Simulated scan of single mutants.
Amino acid sequence: MTFVLSVASMSGGIRVVTIYAEALVRAGHEVTLVSLPYPAIPLRRKIKSFVTGKGWLETPVIPSYLDDMDLDHRVVEKYRPIVESDVPDADVVIATWWETAEWVNALSPAKGEKVYFVQGHEVFPFCPIDRVMATYKMPLHKITISQWLADLMRVEYGDADVDLVPNSVDHQQFFSTPRAKQPRPTIGFLYHETPLKGLDVTLEVISALEKKYPTLRVISFGSFAPTGLFPLPASVEFHLAPDQEHIRDLYTQCDVWLASSRSEGFNLTAMEAMACRTPVVSTRTGWPMEAISSKNGVLADIDDTDALTAGVEHLLNLDDSQWRTVSEAAFETVASSSWEKSATLFEAALGKAIGKRLSEKRIATPQPSVVAGRG
Results as ranks from 00 to 15, higher is better:
131 R>P: 02
131 R>V: 10
132 V>T: 07
132 V>Q: 04
139 P>Y: 11
139 P>I: 06
140 L>P: 06
141 H>D: 14
141 H>T: 11
143 I>L: 08
143 I>V: 11
144 T>R: 02
144 T>L: 07
144 T>Q: 06
145 I>D: 06
146 S>T: 14
146 S>G: 09
147 Q>R: 13
148 W>N: 15
148 W>I: 12
149 L>M: 11
149 L>N: 12
150 A>K: 08
150 A>S: 14
151 D>V: 11
152 L>P: 02
152 L>Q: 10
152 L>D: 10
153 M>T: 05
156 E>W: 02
157 Y>D: 10
157 Y>E: 08
158 G>F: 00
159 D>I: 11
160 A>G: 08
160 A>N: 13
162 V>A: 01
162 V>G: 09
163 D>W: 00
166 P>Y: 12
166 P>F: 03
167 N>M: 07
167 N>A: 12
167 N>F: 03
167 N>T: 06
168 S>Y: 00
168 S>T: 11
171 H>P: 12
172 Q>K: 14
172 Q>H: 15
172 Q>M: 11
173 Q>N: 10
174 F>M: 13
174 F>W: 08
174 F>R: 01
175 F>L: 08
176 S>H: 11
176 S>P: 02
176 S>R: 09
177 T>K: 11
177 T>R: 08
180 A>F: 03
180 A>R: 09
180 A>G: 12
181 K>W: 00
184 R>Q: 15
185 P>W: 05
185 P>S: 08
186 T>Q: 02
187 I>M: 05
188 G>D: 04
188 G>W: 02
190 L>F: 10
191 Y>N: 00
191 Y>P: 00
191 Y>I: 08
192 H>V: 08
193 E>A: 06
193 E>C: 13
194 T>G: 14
196 L>E: 13
196 L>R: 10
196 L>P: 00
197 K>W: 00
198 G>V: 01
198 G>R: 02
199 L>G: 01
200 D>R: 03
200 D>M: 02
200 D>I: 06
203 L>C: 08
204 E>D: 15
206 I>Y: 09
206 I>Q: 03
206 I>C: 06
207 S>W: 02
207 S>Q: 13
210 E>D: 13
212 K>N: 13
213 Y>W: 09
214 P>T: 14
214 P>Y: 01
214 P>D: 09
215 T>I: 04
216 L>K: 03
217 R>L: 07
218 V>D: 01
218 V>G: 03
219 I>R: 01
220 S>F: 00
221 F>I: 01
221 F>L: 13
221 F>N: 09
221 F>W: 13
222 G>M: 04
225 A>V: 11
226 P>L: 03
227 T>S: 15
228 G>S: 09
229 L>C: 07
229 L>D: 13
230 F>G: 05
231 P>H: 05
233 P>T: 11
235 S>W: 08
235 S>T: 15
236 V>K: 00
236 V>Q: 04
236 V>W: 00
238 F>N: 02
240 L>I: 07
240 L>M: 08
240 L>K: 06
241 A>P: 01
242 P>C: 10
242 P>Q: 06
242 P>V: 07
243 D>F: 02
244 Q>G: 09
245 E>I: 10
245 E>L: 14
245 E>T: 15
245 E>C: 03
